[in-house]
């Protein structure tokens, strides 16, 4: 490597540059944090029910089969827009009923078809889960996914 790039110069560029990029990154994430809480997820209030729903989602590790906003496992369909796909994104009662019916029908037991397990979820939790999925569905995700198939 050329001689102008001495070891100590390379080191200083590394330290100085890294600090610079960390600062820029921190500033941008702070701005993004505000944008998320005030704008992109503000379409529906973050109620206790939605919180409980998120907890139910996590407790059952749904993420290790499904994607949510495109992140997770690739074994089962996207659920960030499932309420839109089911046509109940603006209908809490309908969302609960269709989700409850779906969950109770699992596992399907159909030979050769991927199986979704049976989960122990109370009625209150099921309502919360439906609200959580509706809440996620209304997030401004820059028009992702490209279509309702998810």
């Amino acid at each position: 490597m050329p001689e102008i790039l001495t070891k100590s110069r390379a080191r200083n560029v590394f330290y100085g540059g890294s600090v610079f990029f960390v600062l820029v990154f921190v500033a941008l994430t702070a701005q993004s944090h505000r944008y998320i809480s005030r704008t992109s997820t503000a379409g529906m209030p973050l109620t206790d029910e939605v919180r409980l729903g998120k907890h139910v989602w996590e407790r059952n590790s749904c993420i290790n089969c499904h994607t949510l906003h495109g992140e997770g496992a690739y074994f089962a369909p996207e659920v960030g827009n499932v309420m839109t796909r089911w046509g109940v994104a603006d209908d809490p009662e309908g969302a609960y009923e269709i989700l409850d019916g779906w969950m109770k029908a699992q596992p399907s037991g159909i030979e050769g078809r991927r199986q979704m397990p049976h989960f122990e979820i109370t009625d209150e939790e099921m309502r919360a889960l439906a609200e959580f999925l509706r809440w996620a569905d209304q997030t401004n995700t820059q028009n992702w996914p490209p279509n309702d198939a998810g």
Partner: peptide
Amino acid sequence: ATALFSGILGTGHHFYWIGTP
């Protein structure tokens, strides 16, 4: 140096569709 200069702000490739600006 090239790793951190690109990788820190490169985190942005996960911030396209999750509700971030």
